[in-house]
Nucleic acid binder design. Sequence first.
RNA 1: GCUCCCGUAGCUCACUUGGAUAGAGCAUUCGCCUCCUAAGCGAAGGGUAGUAGGUUCGAAUCCUACCGGGAGCGCCA
Length: 558
Amino acid sequence: MDLEVRERLLALVRESAEKVVQEIDAKGLERLDAVQVVPTKSADHGDFATNAAMVLGKALGCSPREIAERIQRALLDPEGIVAKMEIAGPGFLNFFLARSHWDDLLSRILREGVSFGCSEAGSGRRVMVEFVSANPTGPLTIGHGRNAVLGDSIARLLEATGHEVKREYYFNDGGRQMRVLAQSLRARYEQELGIDSRLPEDGYQGEYLIRVAEQLSAEQERGWLEADEDQFKKRAESAMFADIDRTLKDLGIHFDEYYNEQSLYAEGRVEEALADLKAKGLVYERDGAVWLRSSELGLDRDRVLVKSTEEPTYLLPDIAYHRESLRRGFDTIIDVLGPDHIEQFPYVRAAIQALGGAAERIEVVIYQWVNLRQAGEIVKMSTRKASFITIDKLLDEVGPDVFRYFMIERRGDTHIDFDVELARERSERNPVYKIQYAHARLCSLIRMGESRGITLPAPEEIAWDRLESPTELELAKVLERFPELVTHASEAREPQEVARYLLDLATTFHSYISDGKRHRVLSDDRGLSVARLGLVSAIRTTLANGLKLLGIAAPERM
RNA sequence: GCUCCCGUAGCUCACUUGGAUAGAGCAUUCGCCUCCUAAGCGAAGGGUAGUAGGUUCGAAUCCUACCGGGAGCGCCA
């Protein structure tokens, strides 16, 4: 694919700036890296601007404006990308792009359709995105929902930029939590049968277990009174996973693999990791526990690998898991994790590194917890006490699109206070509706065009030069940003950039279409109608492509 | 004790990874459906960007210190 115009401009500017530097003082060469070309905020400043003259000013000992003039004179533009250049402000060199650029852009969008915005940047790279990874002890909470939406959107962005993506759910159905869950289910089952049975001290109090128990007693009657803990565990686990899967499905999320931590034990990977760490002299015993000598790996203290009860902490299997993932041949492994891992993860990474693993291929996307606000009060969420609102409940009220948008509109590393009442209210008047509404209106225009017999010819045959208003050019300018935005959001693992962008595009469109006196799309002027419908179609394509990256529906009618 | 996040309009948050006059939504006030979907649009008011330094041609953005708020970890995971 062609380079985006910004990159082509940057190359021209650097080339020209280099010549100027050579003429004046070669010492300025090392400043060339700081030269940028960026889209402008205001149309008065053209379409793109470069800071080259300001960056080089000091090194060359000349005024920025003088340098800007020399760069302007030296700039060669064989393709004729630039129609006009201006020097402004403290020394910006502003570029006004040639009309043909915008015409080409609109043609290109129509030609590329669903793949506009996609790239092959990550072609040949295998990436694993490991997310959700909630243990099957209860329904998914809103916090898990943030993880789910974030991970899935990152995966979608990676796919759009050509990566081969595997979505993985890593879980642990061994250990204490699951035993407590099994005991809790047994207690509920016995209660169903009228036996005065109590939940274990720190048992799972959620209502969902009662439902499972009801079903179990209906099926088995008293048949499970002698059942062992393992039977209850398996029963509880499959019920919990059924819940989780349904929720994920409602959110439009699927996984390629469910990876069980227990398999690491079964295959001896955990022992192996411990043995290898021992062989490197990175392990010692104290107080009956086995410690990782992480303070010798540049970290602030040592950590327990195996507790005095002989159970491993999460750290050891995590080291084994990541080693195993690297062996599976991924170029990049992205873990989407809650803030409880912020402090921990460096130890996993350090251990992998010390064992000679490619720790730099492991990336962590940390998100902050979602606080729930009810009647103005922050509610702490705990799975065990069931003091949470499940995603299911919320999805019933606001639907997956609003939920996904809520979870993705902010950067992952900021806190979200999720106000349930507000979410309900806002479900009727919400940014995501504004975006979807724009898409529906665009579709409506296309339908109306068709009903009047106006269909789009091949993109190159559209008389794009009929689009003359500033708003139309502004729209084109917004569309222009999309491919680069997708690339950036993908590389930065920041899907909220897409959400922001879509809102911006939708707003610009609503503004355009509301001024129907000046820009009526469908009119008696057939050529103009075709050109405007072409623009409409390009906007629709871009909105739809962006919504798809976020897993949000693009309705044709509302 | 250690780690992370946040202090920007009355509220919730942006600012394209250091650029030109700091922007949206909500809320408030005032307008717009004989005209392609009013889930929309236009306009007005509202700001010492927590404080103090530093780096830079240029700082809301980077660095340091302090103040204030939120969260996590320290043999549960």
